[in-house]
């Protein structure tokens, strides 16, 4: 007889189930992405997933860990998907591969594997690639441009020359340029490919709410992230409407929704206490805004998350909740 100790009754759950629900929650956003911007994203996800699984398997073998158990936990696939959807949809395949390898091999396994990484692996991938390949990481389908599926694939796999004219900066970049050129900005929503990006963001929001409902994540991080970013954006916009975009633009543009519900909520590298989560996520939201508005990169989520990752041990330490019965002592 197996001699274990109580509890003998366990909830029907597993890491794999948690990760599967995260993937499920990403699906609406990805579908909208594929429909509105192009199916290139699906190719990217496939490339990223295969690379992640191969890298994960190799690292597990090297580290002498049970392959079936860990390969099936789904964590590598979540990382792969996040890399794929934060990278430009028309990035060359090898860029995605490099990003995923960095995420899995360096950011995850060299730090000790599942549960040990102090930094968000997908954001490490993004940061490393945007520093190393700034031009390729900044090529997004331009406003109003509809790339044919075949053309997107040709680009991804390097079968056709990349026409610089067909790609441009992200809407945030475009906005920045516009504001610098004193052209002002009046539209309430981001303008890439119509309102495609806003629609995708709303799909991520729906997926994120699903995760809150399923108790995979708590409300703290998304609320503090979006609240802090929206507040700062709103204040600056009220102060100088011509100089700053409105808060809706910021919340629905760039990676804000994805970041708030799927990236900053990475449990391993984020804060864990309720108050800690609020501080952590507010920090990410504020930093992301500052970097995307005043910095030199198209979006600031990745760097904001990585910077706040560094602060996590400190935040957790100073925000330990009071235990039962000790609240007024």
């Amino acid at each position: 007889m197996e001699f274990s100790t109580s509890p003998y009754l366990l909830k029907d759950t597993s890491v794999r189930r948690v990760m599967t629900q995260v993937l499920l929650a990403l699906v609406p956003g990805i579908v909208a992405y594929a429909l509105l911007i192009g199916p290139g994203i699906l190719a990217q996800i496939a490339i990223a997933t295969l690379t992640a699984l191969a890298a994960e398997a190799a690292m597990l073998r090297l580290r002498d860990k049970p392959l079936a158990l860990f390969l099936g936990d789904g964590s590598a696939v979540v990382t792969a998907w996040l890399v794929a959807i934060t990278f430009p949809p028309v990035a060359p395949w090898w860029l995605t591969v490099v990003g995923v390898l960095f995420a899995i091999v360096v950011a995850k396994h060299l730090y000790g594997g599942l549960g040990q990484n102090p930094f968000n692996p997908a954001m490490i991938a993004f940061a490393v690639c945007i520093v190393s390949f700034p031009a390729l990481m900044s090529q997004w389908p331009g406003p109003g441009s509809h790339l044919a599926p075949a053309q997107q694939l040709d680009w991804i796999f390097g079968l056709a020359p990349r026409l610089d004219g067909m790609t441009s900066a992200t809407p945030l970049d475009a906005l920045k340029t516009a504001l610098r050129a004193d052209e002002g900005h009046s539209g309430p929503l981001p303008f890439l490919a119509g309102n495609a990006q806003a629609v995708i963001a709303l799909c991520y929001l729906a997926g994120g709410l699903f995760l809150v409902w399923r108790k995979i994540i708590t409300w703290h991080i998304p609320t503090a992230f979006l609240g802090a970013m929206g507040l700062l954006a709103g204040l600056l916009w009220l102060w100088q409407p011509a100089g700053f975009a409105n808060p809706v633009f910021h919340l629905l543009g760039g990676g804000a929704m994805l970041g708030a519900f799927f990236i900053a909520t990475d449990p391993v590298s984020g804060a864990t206490t309720p108050r800690g989560k609020l501080i952590f996520a507010a920090g990410v939201g504020l930093l992301a805004y500052i970097i995307r508005v005043f910095g030199g990169y198209p979006d600031g989520i990745a760097f904001a998350v990585l910077i706040m990752n560094i602060c996590v041990p400190l935040i957790d330490m100073y925000t330990q909740p009071k235990v039962f019965g000790m609240k007024d002592q």
Binding site: S14, V18, L69, D73, T218, P267
Partner: peptide
């Protein structure tokens, strides 16, 4: 019980 996995700090 299923095999023990590392803690993912899910809280």
């Amino acid at each position: 019980k299923a095999p023990e996995m590392p803690c993912i700090r899910c809280g």
